[in-house]
């Protein structure tokens, strides 16, 4: 964990409710699947957000406006500085990928998979991606994943684009390991649908984000774990589902 003062260089909508923020001045060194905890002016608690990308000292965060914190965040302008705790959580286990890993993301669960895909491709892996959204207007980063060289499929619940249905309706054959991030019902459906091993990133309301308050605990097969510290990524076989 580090505490960094970063400068906003971009904060623009990707869809009606999803924004992309870019911040410069980042020390770097964080792993795919880790998150940052952002202090927002006027709010007491920090807001945890997954790392979407990290390149040349620029951190990319993608977040959905759902409450007071994200609303406030969406109104911040380039040039403003943010106090950010960085390098939080365990991150994905890249060593488990095998040759052809599958990345499965739903909604605002998609962003951390981008940084993961980039790093896996750097390691010479053949990466397949399935991205699930409710409707075509909510789709983001499809082109970005394709540009990385990922075999990319999109699903929409209403069938307005790509495969009609959920991510589990578009799982490609040939994968032997998956990485996932998305809403709990998606993770549970994937857990049941994919007959091979994998790991999933979880979300929880957090107090500190670095393991001190026990606000975000989750019970696993090996006991109580902090989503912010031992997580947010947990192996499939650790889950009590």
């Amino acid at each position: 964990m580090n505490r960094e003062l970063l400068t906003i260089t971009e904060n623009e909508p990707l869809t009606a409710s999803v924004f992309r923020m870019r911040l410069s001045g980042c020390a770097g060194g964080y792993l795919p699947g880790q998150f940052v905890n952002v202090a927002l002016p006027g709010l007491y608690l920090r807001r945890p957000i997954s790392v979407c990308d990290l390149a040349d000292g620029t951190l990319t965060l993608i977040y959905k406006v759902v409450g007071r914190g994200s609303e406030l965040m969406s109104r911040l302008r380039p040039g403003e500085k943010l106090d950010v705790l960085t390098g939080l959580g365990n991150g994905y286990d890249l060593a488990a990928a095998g040759d052809a890993p599958l990345l499965v993301g739903g909604g605002v669960g998609v962003p951390p998979l981008y940084y993961l895909a980039k790093e896996l491709i750097k390691q010479g892996k053949t990466v397949s991606v399935v991205l699930g959204f409710n409707t075509k207007d909510e789709i983001f980063y499809e082109d970005e994943f394709r540009a990385l060289g990922c075999q990319t499929a999109v699903t929409t619940a209403d069938g307005s684009r790509g495969v009609k249905g959920f991510v589990t309706d578009a799982l490609p054959g040939g994968a032997s390991y998956y990485y996932a991030c998305g809403p709990l019902p998606m993770l549970k459906a994937l857990y049941r649908a994919a007959p091979f091993p994998g790991e999933m990133s979880f979300e929880e309301r957090m107090g500190c984000g670095f393991g001190a308050c026990m606000g975000c605990s989750m019970m696993t097969k090996s006991g109580a774990k902090r989503v912010c510290r031992e997580g947010p990524v947990f192996k499939k076989e650790e889950l009590l589902w």
């Binding site: 709010l43 007491y44 608690l45 007071r68 914190g69 929880e204 309301r205 957090m206 107090g207 308050c213 026990m214 606000g215 975000c216 605990s217 989750m218 019970m219 109580a224």
Partner: peptide, 23 residues
């Protein structure tokens, strides 16, 4: 003790609520 179910944390004006439950 595992403590209470989550969510255990809520934002407040100049403060927070916790219901960790002695984990």
């Amino acid at each position: 003790r595992f403590g209470n179910p989550t969510p255990r944390i809520a934002e407040c004006t100049a403060g927070m609520i916790n219901a960790v439950g002695l984990q």
